[in-house]
Amino acid sequence: MEKVIIAPGKYVQGYDVLSNISRYVKPLGQKPLAIADNFVAGLVGGTVRESFLQDNMELILEQFNGECSRPEIERIQAICQSAGADVIIGFGGGKTLDTAKAVGYYAKIPVVIVPTIASSDAPTSALSVIYTPEGEFSEYLLLPKNPDMVMMDTKVISQAPARLLVSGMGDALSTYFEARANRASGHTTMAGGQSTQAAFVLAELCYKTLLADGLKARLAVESDVCTKAVENIVEANTYLSGIGFESSGLAAAHAIHNGFTHLSECHHLFHGEKVAFGTLTQLVLENAPLKEINTLIDFCQSVGLPTTLAEMGIKEATPEKLRIVAEGACAEGETIHNMPFPVTADAVVAALITADKLGAR
C-alpha cells in the first residue's frame, strides 16, 4: 500500500499575527468573506478589519449562527456568491471552522482557518462535522483537500481559559500512541494510505513536546501570558497532532472517547479530556510497560487531565455503565479496530477498570 501525508497549504503561528492577516490572505483572494460568532467578532474583529483596511481590501464579516448545519452552510454559501467572495475565513471554534471549510468546498474558493483556541487538532484537517440545526450529529463531510491556510495567533489563544489549552493537550496526547498502533497494524489512515516517516516523526515530536512544555504552558496561560512553552504547545496541539492523527491514523483512544459520549455523566467534559483517559486505557489494552503508563499518568495529573473514572464524572462505575462505553468503542467501523490485535468489549471493560486503578494509585 502507498504512503500518504496530507497537510494545510500554509501554517502561520505567532504572537499578534492577526494584525497582519491581510498580508497572508491577499495571495489567496481579493474579496474575503469572514464568519465568526458575536463573541469572537468582538474579540478579533477590530484587529482584522484594520489589517484589511491598511491593505485596501474590503472585508465582509458575517455572523455565524452557532451550528455547522446544512442550512447554515447553504446560507453562507449564498452570501459568498452574491458578494463575489473569492476566499472564506473562519474565526473561532470548531463549528465555525468546519462551516468555513464546507462553504469553501461547495463554493470552490480557498479556505483560511483562524482558531481562537488550541483545544483540538481539527483545524488542519480535511474534514467537517455536520450537525442538524438542533445540534445533533448528522454526518462527516470528507473534503478533498486540507485548508489553504491555518493561522494561530498566540496572543489571542494565550488569553483563553487554560482548560481549553489543556484539553488540546489531551487530544494531542493520543497522537503518538494511536500512530504507533496504526504503524504496527498497517491499516489505512484518513489520508488514504499508510503513514509516512515524516508523519510518524511529527506524531512522536508531539508527545515529546507535551511532556517537555505542557505544565509550563498551562501555568503561563493561567496568567494570560504567552511564553515559548505556550508557543510550542499550541503548535503541538494543532499542527503536530493534526498532521499526526490524519496521516498516521486513529486507534483505541478516540474510539473509547466516543464510547464515553454515551454516558450523560461525561457530557460536561471537553473532547481532549475524554481522549486523555482513552489514551491511558489504550496503553492498558496494549499491556504497555508500566514505566510508559506512569509517565502518561504523571503528565495528565500535572496539567489537570483526568486519570480516574471519578474524575471523568463517573462516580459509580458499574459494570453496566462500563459496558455501554465499551460497546460504543467497539461499534462497527470504530477506529479501535485499527489496533494491531482484535479488541472486544470485554477487553475494553477490563482495560477501563485497570486504567482507573492505575490512575488512582
Rank of each mutant, 00 (worst) to 15 (best):
K3T: 04
V4L: 08
A7V: 03
K10Q: 14
Q13T: 02
Y15L: 08
V17R: 12
V17D: 02
L18T: 05
I21D: 07
I21P: 04
P27I: 00
P32S: 09
I35F: 14
V44T: 14
S51R: 09
D55K: 12
M57G: 12
E62Q: 11
F64Q: 08
E67W: 08
I73P: 03
Q81L: 13
D86L: 11
I88L: 14
G93A: 14
K95S: 13
L97G: 02
L97E: 08
D98E: 10
Y105V: 00
A107D: 10
V114A: 11
V114W: 13
I117H: 01
S120Q: 11
D121M: 06
T124H: 08
L127K: 07
Y131H: 13
Y131M: 05
Y131G: 00
E134C: 00
E139Q: 14
E139P: 00
K145L: 01
N146E: 08
P147C: 06
D148R: 09
M151W: 02
S158V: 05
Q159F: 00
P161W: 12
L164T: 10
M169H: 08
A172G: 07
A172R: 08
R180L: 12
H187G: 03
T188W: 06
G192N: 03
A199P: 02
F200P: 03
V201M: 08
L205E: 12
K208F: 02
T209R: 01
D213I: 00
G214I: 03
K216D: 03
K216A: 15
E222A: 01
V230W: 10
E231I: 05
L240M: 15
L240Q: 12
G242S: 10
S247G: 01
L250H: 11
L250M: 12
A255E: 09
T261N: 15
H267N: 12
G272V: 07
L280N: 06
N287L: 00
A288N: 11
P289T: 04
K291M: 05
I293K: 14
T295W: 01
L296S: 11
T307W: 15
T307Q: 10
G313H: 15
K321L: 07
I324A: 05
E327G: 01
A329G: 14
E334S: 13
T335H: 06
T335Q: 13
H337Q: 06
A347T: 05
A347F: 02
V349G: 02
V349S: 02
L352Y: 13
D356H: 15
K357R: 13
K357H: 08
